[in-house]
């Protein structure tokens, strides 16, 4: 069975709502996460703002996302330069 199908099956079963890069190796080879899970939070400019090897807890993720979304909204309101 191909990888995408396997991933899809797990995601349906566990009701995972996001989009996944199905990786047979090259992405992990380049990013080399120390383990799973590894989390990155990337802001609206594409800059890595948080990096957690291991789950930091839902509270930490929520706080980080809220802060960055606020930043993104502020920037969106600014008149274009």
């Amino acid at each position: 069975m191909d990888d995408a199908k396997k991933v899809k099956e797990v995601m349906v079963k566990e009701k995972l709502p996001w989009r996944t890069f199905v990786d047979s190796g090259p992405i992990a080879e380049k990013w080399k996460p120390a383990g799973t899970p590894t989390f990155y939070v990337i802001d609206h400019k594409g800059v890595i703002r948080y990096k957690w090897p291991g789950a930091p807890g839902a509270g930490a993720i929520d706080t980080a996302l809220e802060k960055l979304i606020e930043e993104a909204e502020k920037d969106a309101k600014k008149p274009p330069e």
């Binding site: 995601m11 990337i42 800059v47 890595i48």
Partner: peptide, 14 residues
């Protein structure tokens, strides 16, 4: 690292 522009990832989804 934190503060760097994330390298792009290209791939296929599920």
């Amino acid at each position: 690292a934190v503060g760097k522009v994330a390298p792009d990832i290209e791939g296929e989804d599920q």
